[in-house]
Amino acid sequence: MSFNTSPSNAAEYAWEKDDVFGRIASRYDLLCDMFSCGIHRLWKRRVAQRIASEPWNTLIDGATGTGDIILRLLPILSAQGRTMIAADISPKMLAIAERRLDRFAETVKLCQLDAENMSSIADNSVDAYSLSLVLKICDRQRVLREALRILKPGGRLIVLEASNIRIGLLHRAYLRYMSICMPALGWLATGGDASAYRYLLQGIRDFPTAEALATEMTQLGFTEVAFERLSLGIVAIHSARKPAA
């Protein structure tokens, strides 16, 4: 088996080789709180609001992890007549999402899917597709091509991902802070699993700027590509549409 080391895989991570997110699934939410000082909750709430503002009947939340986005989405929209699929490659992550979403079992389906190759999802079959904090640890070109394939013409893609602070000095200071704090916090939270924070740190450091990611989306064929920086640009919400024709 060959593992993906594409230049578009910022973290040079391959889940087949190192199932680190399966190993840390029970501590993943704690890691998110520690690395972001809890601010990720605000980011995800904003993403849920953006998804809810779009007209759609079928949504896939790819790389759903423990189901955070779906949990924030359900209280702010009417689920009647809608199909929501919470998908992830990790069975252990999905198991946690299933427990958290158990009371919404009639509304939300869970599905094990690889965002880089969703062969079980038909072409032009999904109205909206959301991704959060996953492009930096996968081959984003493959993931975005799959998104373009499964979306219906006119369908909407919404992505929350690491970005860049436009003030260079602040961005370098942020990366320095992360390079010091992430290993220490990651080691404590995962019981010494070094790979957990190594992939995340590399993915943040080597991920393209918001402008560069928007250009990649456009070059792949998306239209109406836009982004909104949050927390000075630590992350950004990207939105794009599959051409209607």
Rank of each mutant, 00 (worst) to 15 (best):
F3K: 06
A10I: 01
A11H: 06
E12F: 11
D19H: 06
L30W: 08
S36I: 05
G38H: 01
H40V: 07
V47H: 00
Q49E: 15
Q49N: 09
R50Y: 13
T58P: 04
D61E: 14
G62K: 00
G62S: 10
G67R: 08
G67Y: 02
L74G: 09
S78F: 01
T83P: 03
T83M: 13
A86K: 02
D88S: 08
A97L: 13
R99G: 15
D102R: 15
D102N: 12
T107G: 05
T107P: 07
K109M: 11
L110I: 12
L110V: 10
C111N: 14
Q112V: 11
E116D: 07
E116G: 14
S119A: 15
I121A: 12
L131Y: 04
V134K: 00
L135M: 08
L135F: 13
K136F: 10
I137C: 11
C138I: 12
R140V: 02
R149D: 04
K152A: 08
L157T: 05
L160Y: 03
E161V: 01
A162M: 03
I165R: 08
L170K: 13
L175M: 14
C181L: 11
M182H: 02
P183I: 07
G191V: 01
D193K: 12
D193C: 14
R198V: 04
R198S: 09
Q202V: 00
I204L: 10
D206I: 03
A210N: 06
A212V: 09
A214W: 08
T215I: 14
E216A: 15
Q219W: 03
F222S: 05
A226H: 04
A226V: 00
F227V: 02
E228C: 09
S231T: 13
G233W: 02
I237Q: 03
R241I: 05
R241D: 00
R241A: 06
A245H: 09
